[in-house]
């Protein structure tokens, strides 16, 4: 079994439901994100459009983060998920530097690396990842890439524009996009203007309202 993700960008409407579900399910601290939806506006007024791209760990088959981790805190599960053992992590941030997708961050509360695990704990209980359940338009498709009749395999077989991010890195991501353009999948194809980042001024790790 090799689990994978596919996001149909034709369907995604940028509601950020997946983002919130992920934060709640995994208790992701403020100012950090395992999954986020990036908005990119394309074109010149009045010929403009807004694109939405959910970004999470790609669970690469050839994961640079797993390779660089000095203590195997990042490791493969039998189902292909790149999981993280936060008790073992020494916080060297090598994985943060190695990930070509910017999917790993240092958790400000545990001071260890953290990232999307495809909700490995839910998957172990035969449940879908929280983001899949929360998506109102079923843009997130999750399943076994080795099973030819799984939803994700059928989606990949029936769509001609299936892409991965940064294929030139040779990481073989288990995370696919349908309907993605250059501006959505290539971070260098869009400008980042100061002031459009979400919660980027947060300096505290305290939850809103302080300790409970």
């Amino acid at each position: 079994m090799q689990l994978g993700f596919l996001v149909d960008l034709h369907l995604c409407m940028g509601c950020k439901g997946c983002e919130i579900a992920c934060k709640v399910e995994n208790e992701v601290p403020l100012s950090t994100w395992r999954l986020r939806v990036k908005y990119v506006d394309v074109g010149v007024f009045p010929e403009t459009k807004r694109t939405f791209t959910p970004l999470r760990c790609n669970h690469c088959e050839n994961a640079p983060c797993e390779r660089i981790c000095p203590v195997s805190a990042l490791h493969y599960l039998d189902n292909g998920i790149v999981n993280i053992d936060k008790e073992r992590c020494i916080g060297c941030a090598g994985c943060v530097m190695a990930c070509p997708y910017g999917a790993i961050y240092i958790d400000p509360e545990t001071q260890t690396a953290d990232k999307c695990t495809y909700c490995a704990h839910r998957v172990a209980s035969s449940m879908m990842p929280a983001c899949v359940v929360a998506c109102p338009v079923e843009a997130n498709i999750f399943g076994d890439l080795d099973d030819p009749i799984s939803n994700i395999s059928k989606y990949i077989q029936s769509n001609s524009d299936v892409q991965v991010r940064k294929p030139e890195k040779g990481t073989n991501p288990h995370h696919y996009y349908v309907g993605g353009g250059n501006v959505q999948l290539n971070p260098l194809a869009s400008e980042r203007v100061e002031g459009y980042s979400l919660f980027n001024k947060l300096t505290t790790k305290m939850p809103v309202g302080g300790h409970h």
Partner: peptide, 10 residues
């Protein structure tokens, strides 16, 4: 492309 990131995390 005239593409601008209009909402993202820091």
């Amino acid at each position: 492309t005239h593409a601008v990131v209009t909402l993202d995390v820091g």
